[in-house]
């Protein structure tokens, strides 16, 4: 059963890409290849002509949800350093309680 997940309150994600580097530093991952997370930026012109910028951190195949850190009682490196504090890692049953009421969010799961 899927037990753990990452809740992403992406409406506050600024696209600063700190999470990407936090992961690269933690695992000494090489430049030029994707790490555990890649931030996607969308610049949308909404139907009412308003410009709207959305950033979404996408957790890649290379993400291991920081199993080692979590075992030591630490937060995943990206969660710890996220400049906008939009990432929460934890048990899915706990995360569902944290889902924000007034905006969209993403719950990323890992089996």
């Amino acid at each position: 059963m899927t037990e753990y997940g990452m809740l992403i309150d992406y409406e506050y994600c600024t696209g600063c890409k700190t999470c990407e580097i936090a992961c690269k530093q933690e695992y000494e991952r090489p430049a030029g290849k994707v790490g555990g997370v890649e931030v996607l930026e969308f610049v949308h012109t909404l139907p009412n002509d308003k410009l709207f910028i959305t950033n979404i951190p996408h957790f890649t195949r290379a993400c291991v949800f920081c199993a080692g850190r979590v075992k030591q009682g630490l937060e995943p490196a990206c969660v710890k350093h996220c400049m906008a504090r939009i990432l929460t890692f934890g048990k899915i049953e706990d995360l569902t309680k944290l889902i924000p009421e007034k905006r969209k969010a993403i719950l990323w799961t890992k089996g």
Partner: peptide, 12 residues
């Protein structure tokens, strides 16, 4: 408060 930006995380 515990956070840090990409430039400082690249210090090594």
């Amino acid at each position: 408060q515990g956070r840090l930006c990409s430039r400082c995380l690249s210090m090594t």
